[in-house]
Nucleic acid binder design. Structure first.
Lengths: 137, 137
DNA sequence: ATAATCAATGTACTTCCGTTGCATACTTAA
DNA sequence: TTAAGTATGCAACGGAAGTACATTGATTAT
């Protein structure tokens, strides 16, 4: 538990009870979570607080946002040392059309793409859709 | 103009005036368009009609939907012979964070990715973000 | 210790987009 | 020409993101 507090502190986020709980929840769950998701789990807390917690986490590099094509923002914890901004650190995501869950495939990196002249890429987002390991088994 | 009618007919879509206009607009504009976008251009028409026109076009394989990370669905005309379902036909998209426009880079294909065991990919979506040709010039 | 200050949380509200139900106009086929 | 099917228009709903303001809680300086 102390590790979580340390992690938050290290990233410039004050470790309040709420934040620790949310971090813990995201660490246990291994898939990307949406705001609605967290909202259901922490029904007692206010939506706005949860919303801002995620935003804060994102700003401070604790989680990264994932757009898996469902038009719902999802978030997943960054690996320790994950530098989401750097192109070579961009991993890809897999969205299962059966269970609707999205996972980070941190081992797989997005291949480098040669763009036409004039285009400057700063970020990349690759989402594969299909059937995940759990659902295909 | 007759070509548009033919294209619609060939794809099993009745070529009404509205649909021809929308197709024409999308053909002239070379970037992906959102519903709101079309709504502004065809202010006299009803939102629902435009919405359903896009949906129909998508179902019949006339346009493909693009999720560029803005959480707003955009649509672009399929190239003649474009088979959006087939993996090898998946091109990538570029979203400019300056002008907020999204273009199809039909020349660039999404590289094949080796997934871990158990994962079966059926679709792929790769969006690069950065500065487009127009804005970087 | 206490006041003052800043950060975190709660309440309420707004906006935007996607979507659906139902009524009406239009087109095609019998 | 009537009937059936399709397209369009009107109205409303629902979900998610975001914002303004009040309130609570924590931290620092006096």
């Amino acid at each position: 538990m102390k590790e979580i507090e340390k992690r938050l502190n290290d990233n410039g986020v004050r470790p309040t009870a709420m934040r620790i709980l949310i971090y813990k929840y995201m660490a246990e769950k291994e898939i990307a979570v949406a705001l609605t998701n967290i909202e259901n789990v922490f029904a007692k807390a206010d939506r706005t607080t949860l919303y801002r917690t995620l935003k804060t986490f994102e700003q401070k590099g604790i989680v990264h946002q994932i757009d898996d094509g469902t038009h719902i923002s999802k978030f997943a914890l960054c690996e320790p040392g994950c530098n989401c901004e750097l192109e070579q650190d961009l991993h890809l995501h897999f969205h299962c059309t059966n269970c609707d869950e999205t996972v980070c495939l941190t081992e797989q990196k997005i291949p480098h793409i040669n763009l036409p002249d004039g285009y400057v890429a700063e970020d990349a987002n690759l989402v594969l859709k299909g059937i995940c390991e759990k659902c295909s088994g």
